[in-house]
């Protein structure tokens, strides 16, 4: 394993047994993610991008192969609070206020009341939700709810942020705004982010590394290191470089579809 790799997968295979026979969700997936990288996983449904993320989180167990997170097994890494996970839906508890939702992991992990308050305030400012602590989820827009769920994942200071299509259910304008904010957050916190998406512009705009995946069996077909600078205004998406990378991602996705 490379010394700066925080996530390292080697020849990872995962097969689900279903009534229609085995489904090869991941086949020979090998990937290194270095500290501070922003890695996007892109590909059509069934390409294993979410499954891979769940393997990193220890929510799925690979059939064969090796995967390590911070040099530990995913289970150990989870117990060591190595990562925060953001799901496709915000999944806030409707009976808790925004502040209460963000302190949920802190309560479970046994932080003191004072520390909970301090951390909730800090991460709420980080996602620009200051002042909404006492509101209930239904009083917030979808984009604000998703920001609260990101704050919840940040609250216990994990180095790694795993995000499974977090903005997939939001409209384009809100999504642009949140992408911009996410990049700022990433720059400020220097976290390692693994980000699953369906959207080519989103992947190219956000990432330092784009992993293109294909289905049946789920596998990696291309890994693109982005030459874009770290500081990215929204209009970088009109630049020649951006369009070139987008083309390469699109070609990679198309190549994976040849056998359909």
């Amino acid at each position: 394993m490379n010394s700066t790799s925080v996530i390292s997968a080697k020849n990872l295979n995962l097969t689900f047994e279903t009534n229609d026979g085995p489904v090869h969700a991941l086949k020979d997936v090998s990937l290194d993610i270095k500290k501070g990288e922003f890695v996007s996983f892109i590909g059509p449904s069934g390409c294993g991008k979410t499954t891979f993320l769940r393997c990193i989180a220890g929510l799925e167990t690979p059939t064969s192969g090796d995967i390590s997170v911070n040099g530990m097994t995913p289970d150990e890494a989870r117990k060591a609070r190595a990562y925060g996970y953001v799901f496709q839906a915000a999944g806030l508890y409707p009976w808790r206020t925004i502040g209460g939702n963000i302190s949920l992991p802190l309560e479970i992990m046994g932080f003191s009341k004072a520390e909970q308050r301090e951390r909730v305030n800090r991460v709420m400012d980080l996602v620009d939700l200051g002042g909404f602590e006492k509101r209930f989820p239904w009083q917030l827009s979808g984009g604000m709810q998703q920001r609260a769920s990101i704050a919840r994942a940040l609250a216990f200071d994990a180095d790694i942020l795993l995000m499974d299509e977090p903005f997939g259910a939001l409209d384009e304008i809100v999504r642009d705004h949140l992408n911009e904010q996410l990049l700022k957050l990433w720059a400020r916190t220097e976290k390692t982010i693994a980000f699953v998406t369906h959207s080519i512009p989103e992947a190219v705009y956000l990432s330092t590394k784009i992993v293109v995946m294909s289905p049946r069996p789920g596998r990696i077909t291309d890994v693109i290191d982005s030459p874009l600078p770290k500081d990215r205004p929204l209009d970088i998406r009109d630049s020649a470089e951006f369009i070139e990378i987008s083309h390469r991602v699109r070609d990679g996705l198309r190549a994976g579809h040849v056998d359909d």
Binding site: R78, Y85, G91, Y93, I108
Partner: peptide, 16 residues
């Protein structure tokens, strides 16, 4: 499933 998975990522026990 998502809400239960969320608790698993916190290594929450059955009681919690």
């Amino acid at each position: 499933g998502m809400q239960l998975d969320l608790l698993r990522t916190y290594s929450a026990n059955a009681n919690q």
